[in-house]
Design a protein around this nucleic acid. Structure first.
Lengths: 189, 189
DNA sequence: ATATGAAACTAACACTTGTTAGTTTGGTTT
DNA sequence: AAACCAAACTAACAAGTGTTAGTTTCATAT
């Protein structure tokens, strides 16, 4: 099922270009040229430029949603749940840094699926928030403004797509441990 | 000097639109319509679409560069310097959340000034890094990977433009203190 | 009254955009 | 050999793009 179809090739090439210039600045001719074919030929495999964006973003958004639902439902401590979230982001991002750029920067160009996407995102943030708030209640997490904690962690995790490709083959495990440490314990001595 | 010229109005309106859809997706006709005039009339005040982007981004980038140079040269502790950086970002961002979106997302569409911008950004990051590394040397800052610490802090600070407008008139002072606390001491109990 | 100048306008341009229609190619199956 | 099919092609379209040229408007200064 997870075979490399021609359609998937197009989506991957497009995602790479979208990361460099953004969805709007990439033309169908750009994508075609990158594949060594003509723009019209793309339409044998995909129905529109929109569809390419949708395929990139929705798949990733659903992956995040499933991931956090599972973490939320698990029997771990709040801190361990947050560590799992860090691992989730690092894992998904390192498998698809190009797509993550679109997820972060081009979601507003979704049309049909914009509301669906926004719903997934709101749900994700709600789960994240509930993990934090529970942790505060249990005295596992510092009693600081949860919005600020969430904003700080999520900003960092959402920027991983910029940062991961610059590092030479970081081990997911090691990066995850180091980043969790910084996010959880801060930077002070 | 800092008068509200027609040119500045255009730049501000454009920045707002750029934040919503990105530079490439905004047309000169969009900008004109938002001002209640025709696209051709814009050219009485600006020379090109490019120029609008340049004015938005370069002014902000230079503001950050000046800010961090001053912090770096000051006589404060490393931790206090980092707190000042947090305040710098919050201060600049809350004055111009629209422009900050372009700085973060549309810099790659600079043409003439792309190299200049990249130089400013590299210099900024170098200053940030040196403050961190110095702090580690002085035993003021934890001996963790400075790249990861910088990445985490900068990611959060660079995302402020998304977050600040959602909060109802936060005091810069208060937000700065809370965010510094989270970034420096983390979230654990 | 006349001239000035900022700031709007109309009309048009050359080019690029996403997309469609119909056709050709070349390997695989019948 | 004939039929099939995925995947490429050429040619064209209607709409939208940034931008230019030349003109009009109208308040202010002479």
């Amino acid at each position: 099922m997870k075979q490399e179809t021609r359609k998937n090739e197009i989506i991957n090439v497009a995602a790479k270009l979208f990361k460099e210039k953004g969805y709007s600045a990439v033309t169908m001719r750009d994508i075609a040229t990158s594949m060594g074919i003509k723009a019209a030929s793309l339409y044998n495999h995909i129905s529109s430029k929109q569809e390419i964006l949708k395929e990139i973003i929705i798949a990733l958004a659903e992956e995040f949603t499933e991931g956090i639902e599972q973490i939320k439902a698990s029997e771990k401590s709040s801190i361990d749940k947050l560590k799992e979230i860090v691992t989730l982001h690092i894992s998904i991002t390192s498998k698809n840094t190009f797509g993550m750029a679109s997820l972060n920067n081009d979601w507003m160009h979704l049309e049909e699926q914009l509301d669906y996407y926004l719903g997934l995102r709101a749900g994700y943030e709600e789960s994240f928030r509930s993990i934090l708030v529970n942790g505060i209640k249990n005295n596992e997490i510092a009693n600081k403004n949860p919005e600020i904690m969430m904003f700080s962690m999520l900003s960092t995790l959402r920027s991983l797509y910029i940062w991961i490709p610059k590092k030479e083959a970081v081990s997911i495990k090691k990066l995850s441990a180091q980043l969790s440490d910084v996010l959880i314990h801060g930077i002070n001595k």
